[in-house]
Amino acid sequence: MACVAKKCGVRFQPPSVILIYKEKDKFRRRVMPVRNFSQFSDCGVAAEQLKNNPRHKAYLEGVSLRQLEKLCRLLKGHLGGESLAESLGKLQQEETIDPEEDMNKLDDEELAKRKSIMDELFEKNRKKKDDPDFIYDIEVEFPQDEQLESCGWDAESCEEV
């Protein structure tokens, strides 16, 4: 079956995931109820159940587990009384680093979360030892002369140091 997922969203009442997909030049809509789901459910598990559901499996091939989990998080937020904007804000916040946050003050779990977000970029930019263009010793000079624009982080602390 040639079906290409185009968009995937969520409907609060009754709790369902909605998929817009293309099949033989036609756009179709599939409504997949998320069953036995409450504000206390585990979104990871719910997403997996949906993705592995024999009736939906073929349609959801092009939808990542991560996206399904996020959609379930929206459902869960709604069932817990959050507004959509609040739930979206929370999701957004969990995926970005607040540059002002003092991570020295986080507990292990929270710190691990931040590290895993930053690790994504690290892995993306990473040159591994086994890469064909890997060079062990890369030296690049970045002269720090007076003409450079300030980083802007020194300003308030001129007298501090």
Binding site: E123, N125, K127, Y136, D137, I138
Partner: peptide, 12 residues
Amino acid sequence: FVSAADGTNVVK
């Protein structure tokens, strides 16, 4: 200025 990811100036 260094990058642990791409290796710039780490060995130096």
